[in-house]
Design a binder for these strands. Structure first.
Lengths: 247, 247
DNA sequence: AGGTCCGTTTCCGGTGAGTGGAAGACTGGG
DNA sequence: CCCAGTCTTCCACTCACCGGAAACGGACCT
């Protein structure tokens, strides 16, 4: 295992130890998982603590700090898109009572910038800040279908990870699905991630008409998707208008 | 103006140029506002871009990048508190139809970790990730009233910034208000930030019974606070239970 | 077309911030 | 008490980082 020689590279390697499955870690764990020598890790952690990028709990374990939360909240996805979209996401949540998600594209992945869910909602696989492959999610299909041509070709040439027997797993199937999304103007992801859910997704456009995000509702398979589709599409349009889009 | 000599210090000084009022900046602006020489700024920005901590738009301006959003979403406030609290916040939003906020304490400030609001809600002064002084907000009063004794004394000894003629601005008034909050078990902030709103806030406790967050509703002054108070308090209790609290 | 201005990018010799192995300190369990 | 694991401190050495200066590129003006 090679660690970066640059200090910033090391700092980000260290921060990458934190995941949703490992939201906190001891100094030794940080050293072990990052590959950085213990004393280097110790010094780096001390600096990150000083800058509030990390914080330490009473048991001595380290967590991502509030400063990164604050900075992250200034990113375009959070500050611009989320703040404008939130009222419409809430409306969609209220009329459907199912998980509502807002996501942007980063490379060949979806990054969720918001998720509204109920206590007894059907699926809790995604979370604010989490990632999923484009090909396997409703929002991902929408974002990919309207992405630049070279992004689509890149996704079609990449391995398509399989989650269930329904996951799109050949370039041919994906190409066909993308064409369907572009024709229809929305996507229905059928049991691609979990065998018990559909995801119904619609595009969100900016003032230039580019698709910059996607909104979706995740419903149990017993739900008829056409009962939520109009609401999802209306929500996508409402957010688009809030972003300055004119049809 | 003195800039840090350490690389991490410089990186964070640079990132501090980004605020809600200046969410993006050019290279020259970053250099000017951070005090770092132009070529140092350029090199640092290039590294931060490589690590996705910054991103660049089509006009060449820099923004906080998705990587910081992802990392920030792993912080305890976002990952643990927010995810557990969200369904109850949504319930509170639904029954009150007013701005709902969830906040934690950081030093002598409140940091908002979630805000749900409607298109026509009365106040939009706060935002995910933003800060306010403890003494002047409902959630701040709650967090301070139940904070360790030395934190309370520190707040009482610090300057109390005034926002309106109603803002608590003397240590005597603050001490009295804190006693009231502790006695009542909730806080009502009367026109302290804006002359048109009240904030009604209640504590959120963890499994050890410590107050680790506060939830509030912001309502117009024409609203009788006792119409929303029970719902806010119930919400605080529900989130506390989700955090493992036992009464 | 040429010139000017401003913002951005590149270059490179010099240097001090950062390094990590080793030793020491601390903590908890047997 | 002993042991193992975790954390903290130390310091001679080195190379990643620095920033002034030059080059580059684009927009605007005459």
């Amino acid at each position: 295992m090679s660690v970066p020689v640059s200090l910033l590279g090391r700092a980000f390697t260290l921060l990458a130890v934190f995941t949703a499955d490992r939201p906190c870690a001891t100094l030794s764990e940080l050293s072990r998982h990052s590959g950085l020598p213990l004393s280097t890790t110790h010094r780096l952690v001390k600096d990150l603590l000083a800058h509030r990028a990390l914080e330490r709990d009473a048991d001595g374990r380290f967590w991502i700090g509030l400063r990164l939360y604050e900075l992250g909240a200034l990113s375009p996805g959070a500050l611009d898109l989320r703040e404008r979209a939130l009222p419409y996401l809430e409306d969609l949540f209220e009329v459907t009572r199912h998980n509502v998600q807002l996501a942007v594209r980063d490379g060949l992945e979806v990054v969720y910038v918001e998720r509204l869910s109920a206590v007894d909602a059907v699926s809790i696989l995604t979370r604010m800040g989490s990632r999923m492959p484009l090909h396997a999610t409703g929002v991902g299909l929408v974002l990919l279908a309207f992405a630049p041509h070279e992004v689509q070709e890149e996704a079609l040439a990449a391995p398509l990870k399989r989650f269930t027997t329904h996951t799109i797993s050949t370039p041919k199937a994906l190409r066909s699905a993308l064409a369907t999304v572009r024709r229809d103007g929305y996507a229905i992801s059928d049991r691609q991630i979990e065998p018990i859910t559909y995801s119904v997704a619609a595009p969100v456009r900016n003032s230039s008409g580019d698709v910059v995000a996607a909104v979706s509702v995740v419903v149990p398979v017993e739900t008829r998707t056409d009962t939520v589709l109009p609401a999802v599409r209306a929500c996508g349009r409402a957010i688009s208008r809030a972003m300055g889009w004119r049809s």
